[in-house]
Write a protein that binds this DNA or RNA. Structure first.
Lengths: 186, 186
DNA sequence: AAATTCTTTCTGTTTTTACTGAAGCAAGCG
DNA sequence: CGCTTGCTTCAGTAAAAACAGAAAGAATTT
């Protein structure tokens, strides 16, 4: 029984496609991803074509994109020449990879661009000081976020999970003036 | 001298517009936002029209959207009937508000949808167990992230900044006997 | 190496989204 | 009031993105 025949699968895939498009990801791409996520075995392109009623070419492009994000990978099924595909099922891993790739594609170039702009702004005497300052602030801000991500991405998953569960409580480890090591657990 | 006459401003606005569209935000909307961010005084719609060469109606819609995100607000300039607009300049505040709004619009409905799906999946005997499990896992995962956000958003800004600067080092509070990749190095 | 099977790339079409200009509406002013 | 000014909504148009089908390109088999 094909996966898509289950109403729950159908709905999941449709919603995931919607979500994607709200975040700047092509709807077909996120649908393919959703389908693979719910599959417990590697699928080949033709199966995806049938499940989602997409053109073969479209599926090919979509798979490439997903592989670019590192959340889908090709595998081989013994005795079958066709490429098969599986999605990352560890959701932390998935999130971190998507984040990494979007950072690489969008954030890093933005930081570079802002750095360049900040340099130019420095040289431009006619530029109002507040503009210079706001560009610099944005540059710094995005840089800080980016640096934070770089650090967090390297943490072992159990640590991430623990931190997340801790939520706002981590705040007690940091006090505006105090020492960072002041761990007053309750 | 109009803001947009400065090359740095021009470039900033264009790049910000690009960025926006990659994240599912209308290019005009993010351009308007960029312009207001760089302005040190409230602008009225007509000024934005001229600066960005957009239709008046378009600017009106864009401003409404930005107000919806809570990152632009209307002000009144004494002796002028027209509405004027200023952008939030505190970047933390900006980020948190955008996050809050996107959560409200996209994440919360998704969680609700997943909850509904999970219920249905429970009842559907024909549904393969691994599908049930993966839907449940996704539901839980997004719920956890969402809960984390709710906690973090409430923290005072200096605390946020401190935590961010601390980066991966917060890990030592949660896994005292650090593991691979853990930020053991000072 | 010819034929088959599978994948990717390319081009034209469709669909969606963004945008404009006009019309409608509201508020303040003469 | 009725006129002016400013804002929003709406409908048609333009631009952009997504998509399908055809053609080309690899790889494998015979």
């Amino acid at each position: 029984m094909p996966l898509m025949d289950h109403p729950a699968v159908q709905k999941f895939v449709l919603h995931w496609g919607e979500m994607g498009s709200q975040w700047g990801v092509n709807r077909s791409v996120s649908q393919i991803h959703a389908l693979l996520y719910l599959s417990d075995r590697p699928l080949h392109a033709e199966e995806i074509v049938e499940a989602l009623s997409l053109a073969r070419s479209n599926v090919s492009t979509g798979l490439k994109e997903l592989q670019g994000y590192g959340i889908v990978r090709r595998t081989h099924v013994p005795g079958d020449r066709r490429d098969h595909f599986v999605a990352e099922t560890d959701l932390w891993e998935m999130l971190l990879r998507i984040a990494a790739e979007r950072k690489r594609r969008e954030i890093d170039p933005t930081i570079a661009h802002l750095a360049e702009l900040a340099r130019e702004a420095e040289a431009d005497g006619a530029l109002p000081p507040h503009v210079r300052q706001r560009i610099a602030r944005m540059h710094e801000f995005i840089g800080t976020l980016s640096g934070w991500y770089e650090q967090v991405r390297g943490l072992p998953k159990p640590t991430l999970v623990a931190l997340m569960k801790l939520g706002g409580k981590v705040a007690r480890f940091v006090s505006p003036f105090g020492r960072k090591g002041d761990a007053a657990a309750d």
